[in-house]
């Protein structure tokens, strides 16, 4: 049974693409057959984060418009065999996507993959609505700050009204992924707390990814963070999130920084 999952947020720069790549890679590492679909036509990024930018020949727009066959456009990851990318076009814009074409491509992908992860562009316009249109479940990425949370709230409203499932009167499964979280700053009141965000958005929490230099390092090297440094806290948060998506019971890891004891003993051990 294939699942179409949209990773969306409304606001830009909150970590949609990073999260798509990390979750997709983690699902693939768990043995699932995964395709990452970059819906950000015109501003494609997912190929860079997967280190596949020099292997792109055909893209989503070519397949949607019927200029290329799906297998010609799919790029298989060199590190995880079951991870694939359907890249976006950098030279076209979102108007090149048609609802009928997207529906056909999603249908074809459903026959080949267990998970179809759609990386949504920012905004609430055509690109974002097409990315969420056929989703079975949604991961809403938000940062702990008011503008991101309000935009996510708007996107949740659209997920509940503009998607196929919503129009058919079915329930749309939604999960919150809180990224760039800093427990220290949250406890000092400089940042929204996890509970504050959950209270406003009122959807189940999939995971909390702490602000971490590992994420940027991995992206710049063309690695999803879960592949580059699986032991990093951010990578672990994504792996746990992927396990939750697969229906495994996992205890959420606390997002807290190292405690006093671990700091003391950690330093002594290093000395």
């Amino acid at each position: 049974m294939s699942k179409v999952m949209v990773v969306t947020s409304g606001k830009g720069g909150v970590g949609k693409t990073t999260s798509s790549a990390a979750l997709g890679a983690a699902l693939a590492q768990a043995g699932q057959n995964v395709v990452l679909v970059d819906f950000d036509v015109g501003l494609r990024n997912l190929d860079l984060i997967l280190g596949a930018e020099r292997r792109v020949v055909f893209d989503l727009v070519n397949v949607v418009q019927g200029d290329a066959k799906l297998p010609q456009a799919l790029i298989r990851d060199k590190r995880v065999e079951t991870l694939h990318l359907l890249p976006a076009s950098q030279t076209r814009d979102k108007d090149a996507l048609t609802p009928e074409g997207v529906e056909r491509v999603i249908g074809e992908l459903r026959e080949r993959f267990d998970w179809i992860v759609c990386d949504s562009p920012a905004g609430i316009e055509k690109g974002a609505t097409l990315a969420m249109r056929h989703a079975d479940l949604a991961v809403v990425v938000a940062n702990p700050e008011v503008s991101s949370v309000r935009d996510s709230d708007r996107i949740i409203g659209m997920l509940d009204s503009k998607t196929r499932r919503a129009e058919a009167g079915e329930k749309m499964e939604k999960h919150l992924l809180l990224t760039r979280y800093d427990a220290g700053r949250a406890s000092r009141g400089e940042m929204m707390k996890v509970e504050d965000v959950l209270e406003i958005l009122a959807i189940p929490l999939l995971g909390v990814v702490s602000e971490s230099p590992d994420v940027l390092t991995a992206s710049n090297l063309g690695f999803p963070v879960t592949l580059h440094n699986p032991a990093a806290p951010a990578a672990r948060a994504y792996s746990v999130a992927a396990k939750k998506l697969l229906g495994e019971e996992v205890r959420a890891e606390p997002a807290a920084k190292r405690g006093l004891m671990s700091r003391l003993f950690g330093r002594r051990a290093a000395a």
Binding site: V146, D153, D160
Partner: peptide, 21 residues
């Protein structure tokens, strides 16, 4: 949710839940 608008000119509106920014 944010961006949604509930309009009921006929009478009272009761909402069980929050009204977002």
């Amino acid at each position: 949710r944010s961006g949604q608008s509930v309009v009921c000119e006929a009478g009272d509106v009761t909402i069980v839940g929050a009204v977002a920014s």
